[in-house]
């Protein structure tokens, strides 16, 4: 138990410190304009890297179903907007395709 407890505390520290440091070092005020531009572009890049390549293995064992369900979410989001509707559509698509 002790060994696991040390592991958990160690993992917490090395996870929390990188999460915390930017809050101490960076605030919105007084940022260099280049830094502001850089930060404004970061979300798009982050979304791309969060999606690819993880989406290909989203549903274990069926890359094709993962990709189709993901595309359904994109189309629904493009057509209707929102978050819950595209998400539910993707899940339903995945379930239906798995059942076939």
């Amino acid at each position: 138990m002790n060994s696991i407890l040390f592991l958990i505390i160690g993992m917490m520290l090395v996870t929390y410190i990188p999460r915390l440091l930017p809050f101490i070092l960076v605030s919105g005020e007084g940022l260099h304009p280049y830094m502001k531009r850089f930060l404004s572009f970061m979300p798009y890049a982050m979304f791309g890297a969060l999606i690819v390549p993880g989406v290909f293995t989203a549903i274990s064992g069926s890359m094709l179903i993962s990709v189709i369900a993901f595309l359904v979410a994109c189309i629904i989001a493009y057509r209707f907007g929102g978050v819950i509707l595209p998400v539910l559509s993707a899940i339903i698509t995945a379930v239906l395709l798995k059942l076939i």
Binding site: P43, Y44, F47, L50, I51, G54, V55, A58, I59, S60, G61, S66, A69, F70, A73, C74, I76, A77, Y78, G81, G82, V83, L85, P86, V87, S89, A90, I91, A94, V95, K98
Partner: peptide, 24 residues
């Protein structure tokens, strides 16, 4: 396992839904 596996698409679908309005 079937349900848990299919739910694996959820977070990716959410990322898509958040990104698509920006793409528009």
């Amino acid at each position: 396992e079937f349900i848990v596996s299919c739910m694996g698409i959820t977070l990716y679908a959410m990322f898509a839904a958040l990104l698509v309005p920006e793409i528009k």
